[in-house]
Nucleic acid binder design. Sequence first.
DNA 1: GGGTGCCGTGTTGACGTTTACACGATCCTG
DNA 2: CAGGATCGTGTAAACGTCAACACGGCACCC
Lengths: 345, 345
Amino acid sequence: MSGKLPGGRRQPTIHEVAATAGVSIGTVSRVASESPRVAPETRARVLAAMAELGYQPNAAARAMRTNQTMTIGFLIPDMTNQVFARVAQGAETVLAPEGYMLFAFSSNRSPAREIEFLQAARQRQMDGLIVTLSDETATGTIEEIARMGVPVVVLDREIPVEADVVYSEHMQPIETVVEQLLQLGHRRIGLITASHNIRPGRDRVAGFKRALEKAGVPIDDWLIRARTQSAERGMAETHDLLTGPNPPTAILAAGSDIFYGALKAVRLLGLSIPDDISFVGADDALLGELVYPPITVIDRDMVEVGRQAAGLLLERLKGLDVPPRRIMLGSDVLLRSSIAAPKIR
Amino acid sequence: MSGKLPGGRRQPTIHEVAATAGVSIGTVSRVASESPRVAPETRARVLAAMAELGYQPNAAARAMRTNQTMTIGFLIPDMTNQVFARVAQGAETVLAPEGYMLFAFSSNRSPAREIEFLQAARQRQMDGLIVTLSDETATGTIEEIARMGVPVVVLDREIPVEADVVYSEHMQPIETVVEQLLQLGHRRIGLITASHNIRPGRDRVAGFKRALEKAGVPIDDWLIRARTQSAERGMAETHDLLTGPNPPTAILAAGSDIFYGALKAVRLLGLSIPDDISFVGADDALLGELVYPPITVIDRDMVEVGRQAAGLLLERLKGLDVPPRRIMLGSDVLLRSSIAAPKIR
DNA sequence: GGGTGCCGTGTTGACGTTTACACGATCCTG
DNA sequence: CAGGATCGTGTAAACGTCAACACGGCACCC
């Protein structure tokens, strides 16, 4: 059993601390929990013993007694996506000062993994959760959330669960962009975005259609690609759109991974932005800025999303008992030189 | 106490499952741990009770008995950096099939936060750790690692601790690139990278100097900027280099965040790559591919780093007791058109 | 037909902590 | 100076689970 690097040392317990300090375990516990009813001299002795042994209280034992773990779980579809990483960062800035530790878990967009995470969170008695589901129609996931028994904050999804939600605005910015493109003379605009199974996908398609309808431009469903979010998909759909019989003169790549893939497809086809094709990306303002020409991007402040979500959670953790709340956060359209009037053929 | 969304329901315990199934807790425990010595009919009754109550075993109680949490902690300097996120992803692909859950924690490059994480990991009895430290000279962090008592795998750092390590090759690719630039006629090359407090920073500077020495080109320390890794820093250093009295004709931005910042500075100065300045980035092959012209990038397979690290950890978790091991993984130089002969002035 | 095993199940500490309760000592108060 | 309050500390039960042990019943064997 020994020999495990580095040392395989058994961790010291409260009993050993008590023994070295020459007090009872109750006293050690009181020192550890900073209870005031300890004589200064005793406290010093206990503290010294703790330092000497490198004592850290056993969280499992503590959790069992107190039903608190000071742990918040954060479920994200994809860890390598900066959008979600920023949310985690924002949430952490709010949670850490309150003593909560945020642990992130990536589901890789698999509902099965999401269920595993939710069960693990329940087993581990996590105090609260922030979750971004990869599919609103996965009933198993929703059932698990309903069972949690601790506060859950949902990000940008519409699910039949009594939980606080933080939404991002998706409809309006797409509308703005489409209007802009229509005004420049575009009539065939391609939209690539997430599937209808999640709110962002639905709302972007809705905003897209609304703008076209308002302008009286007929909707061609062939131009709307609402499927999986991934760079590969973004690339494939863009390639398909641009090499089709009646290609669009503008592309909306609404989603950060889709943005990468779509841009790559445009490069591979050797098309020039905005001369051959107008292009709009989303959720990666920096990339839009670094490429030449700079690309118009629909952007949102994901760190703020994280802060807001953590704020809602924190209030619940403090016992706030009110009906579910919803927060809607805006999106910005960063206009840059990647859109122009379509070429006349 | 109640009223917490969604429901604030207390979690069912093994006792309640036992009661509903009409058996003793021992039997429930045996069913839960898939022990064979249970009558099929009883097993079915227990399983039904579990499903009905939505029972999940309490991990804290279980951990206390078994000294196992099936949890691996992953310490990363910065969650929003794709480099580390990919490592996590790679590690997860190896750990998940073995039943371990990987929880990521971001220190935001603060040694204090790193210590907090290590202590939290010890409190929570995590079974193993994969860590990327932000400063090799922070002694507190190293002491904490030595105390862990469970296997720890260190990524790309040189610290005096008995632990398995996965290294990336940093010296050789920089040398290759510098040689290439020298051959093209460059004599003043700027290097921006991480500080000397971490191995990647040291090794890149070492490789840089070695290439110059081999070619007999004098080393100008003003051209070497080994400080913090961040986009801001990368931008500031690049701006400083390029607006200085005797500016470099090529820039090596060795680090993904530095890459972003440096590229931005070049854009802001209105310089054209590679006509005005040759440019080499690192660790974000995709960005290098998406911009125009495509940028030469020093790249490495971070997912593989994660897989290897997880592999080492897993062996330790299974009881392997051998001296610390080190794995060195290579880096690639993806040559693209961002480097050319310097302009003659 | 009486022992011998084995099978299925129940019972019971133990894990490390918190906290209510107990208790002796000291301090104040009338 | 007696009695009560307060202070500092010790004691013990409980949290939920696992696993060692115990035990009743049945089948099998000679």
